[in-house]
Design a protein around this nucleic acid. Structure first.
Length: 583
DNA sequence: TCCGAGAGCGCC
DNA sequence: AAACGGCGCTCACGGA
């Protein structure tokens, strides 16, 4: 009997959280035993983690809490605590695991091998409504009607009361602070509730196959993040010094012209107007624009200095410093990949933004090098979006042209009686939903000429406009949404129905690459993949096999017959670094 | 001091 | 008839 009493007393007091959630810290053997009892009756649990910050791969980053819960309660484990083995065994017990942003938590836990057991409510939210914001707080408010922001507000107040910011508080707050533990536990509970809601919608809509597909893809993308890319640190540091100097030169020039901060649009506008420069183009808020397209037409040394500064600054801060500051303790860059980053389903890459490195010169890309003994290379689709457009529209002339291996840009140019360059722009703009105004400004031709060119396009490929009109009117009838051939539902902004064509093309092209990635894995070639850039796979292979690998990669990615169009690839061995492909 | 919208710009 | 799509990052600026 005495033992029983001691048993009870050793339980840590539960915390009450908003929305009827109960939070149980696991700090004693009895807590752990109660947890295990609870777990033994579950087949599915929600899991969340708290850490010192978001940069999992950087020195000093630490996991702090792991929360495991269901619709009513959450159990909170302290990192480095006595019961880590209990937590670990629980996660590996075979139960289904629900995360909100699984890639972050599974990286934080160092348990990527649990991906096959993982569901992700952020991923599910994207499948249900890609245009929604997928943050836990916003989703909870939208779907569950409970404003989950309250707990975070309390915590942020606690942070600032202690002199911490939103950035530092997560590392500083006491592991046993009640608001912290309550907030942490609540997130797991809300994630569980979200899952139930989203799962029902996905099942009702018959989107289970897409969910299964995305779960496989997400696992592979997490492996890419984990693999990362080797960085030539010495080269990068030296490049940073050079770019800093370049920026300083431009800044000094601007200063001599009386502009103390050439990063300020306000100062640039005022100085140029004062110098008698006529500015006409305006931004949406009505101010004179100082964008590159404007400044390159301005005959004034200040314009040149500003553009030089912007260019050096961008490369230096966003790419070089951005890469070095986020470098992992292993000397590698570990970019975050969001497999469903865009509302069209396109992937996005951040920290660092490897899909946006300058392609006009190799200096930035040269920071990223192949592993010893390997060469880098890339395989990309040849004009995939135009091919997808032809396929979806079943445009006869385009279909035949692709079969014949004709030059589509030249064909458009011939039909519209413009240069190949303008013909190419017209092709792209059609994919983007652009009109004559856009073509005129981009091609630097008159509005009348642009109209004529687009009329030429429509004459040459009548099926495109026919399909576009059909898609748009159907989209309006269907409640402003379109469905891709892969079953993705894409909502449209009602004042931009014309974007339907682009959404369908972009989303379909994304799925063509995504499906290729799964084929690459099945072929046993995924371990060589380093990065994806929308229509391109960047890879590395041992020197002696690189050429052969390039051919095989191109073959696996190719699609022989996509609704009547071949989706062809171009494969190239770059060299020892990413930049060697851009020299 | 912090936060967020806006402008600008890099990519496909 | 006309309608340029999708991201991530940095900085300046203004309001809380």
């Amino acid at each position: 009997m005495c033992m029983r009493v001691a048993f009870r007393v050793a339980r840590t007091a539960a915390l009450s959280a908003p929305f009827g959630a109960r939070v149980f810290p696991v700090r004693s053997a009895d807590d752990a035993e109660a947890f295990s009892e609870w777990l033994s009756t579950r087949t599915l649990v929600a899991v969340d983690t708290e850490a010192t910050g978001l940069d999992v791969f950087c020195a000093g980053w630490r996991l702090r809490l792991t929360q495991i819960g269901d619709a009513g309660s959450a159990w909170v484990f302290e990192a480095g605590g006595e019961f880590e083995s209990v937590r670990r065994a629980a996660l590996y017990s075979g139960v289904g695991l629900i995360f909100h942003n699984a890639p972050f938590d599974l990286h934080a836990l160092g348990m990527l091998d649990l991906f096959p057991f993982a569901f992700d409510t952020a991923m599910m939210s994207h499948l249900v409504d890609p245009s929604r914001r997928h943050g836990l707080k916003g989703l909870t408010t939208d779907l569950l009607g409970s404003d989950a922001g309250e707990g975070e507000k309390l915590l942020k107040a606690h942070f600032s009361a202690n002199g911490w910011t939103g950035g530092t508080g997560w590392a500083e707050v006491d592991l046993r602070n009640e608001d912290y533990v309550r907030y942490a536990g609540l997130d797991a509970v809300l994630t569980f509730r979200l899952f139930e809601k989203l799962k029902a919608t996905i099942e009702a809509r018959g989107m289970g196959h897409l969910l299964a597909f995305e779960r496989r893809l997400a696992h592979l993308m997490a492996k890419l993040t984990d693999r990362g890319m080797l960085v030539d640190k010495a080269y990068a540091a030296q490049l940073g010094v050079q770019l800093t100097a370049d920026a300083q030169v431009a800044e000094d020039k601007a200063a001599m012209m009386g502009v103390s901060n050439p990063r300020s649009g306000k100062q640039i506008r005022e100085a140029l107007l004062l110098a008698g420069v006529k500015l006409t183009k305006r931004t949406p808020t009505g101010e004179f624009s100082t964008a590159e397209a404007v400044l390159e037409t301005v005959d004034h040394p200040l314009a040149e200095a500003v553009l030089d500064l912007r260019s050096a600054q961008k490369s230096n801060k966003a790419y070089v410093a951005g890469t070095l500051e986020l470098l992992g303790v292993d000397g590698r860059s570990h970019p975050w990949i969001r497999p469903l980053g865009a509302r069209t389903g396109r992937m996005s890459v951040s920290k660092p933004p490897l899909q946006q490195l300058p392609s006009g010169d190799p200096t930035i890309r040269r920071m990223f090098v192949a592993d010893p003994g390997n060469l880098m290379g890339a395989s990309d689709y040849q004009g995939v979006e135009l091919r997808v457009l032809a396929a979806l529209a079943q445009e006869k002339v385009m279909l035949q042209a692709f079969k014949d291996g004709a030059d589509l840009h030249q064909m458009t140019a011939d039909a519209a009686r413009v240069s190949r360059k303008v013909g190419k722009m017209a092709n792209f703009l059609t994919v983007y939903g652009g009109g004559p105004t856009a073509l005129a400004s981009q091609a630097k031709i008159s509005h009348a000429e642009a109209k004529k060119a687009l009329r030429g396009f429509n004459r040459a490929y009548p099926g495109v406009k026919r399909w576009s009109d059909t898609v748009q009117s159907k989209a309006a009838r269907d409640g402003y949404m379109v469905t891709t051939v892969t079953g993705r539902v894409l909502p449209l902004d009602r004042d931009r129905i014309y974007a339907a064509v682009n959404y369908l093309v972009q989303s379909t092209a994304r799925d063509i690459l995504a499906q290729a990635i799964l084929r690459i894995e099945e072929a046993g070639m995924f371990d060589n993949v380093l990065m994806l850039v929308h229509d391109e796979v960047l890879w590395q292979a041992p020197k002696a096999e690189a050429e052969e690998f390039a051919v095989e990669m191109g073959r696996i990615m190719s699609v022989d017959d996509f609704y009547g169009v071949a989706i062809t690839t171009d494969s190239e061995v770059y060299g020892p670094n990413w930049g060697s492909g851009y020299e």
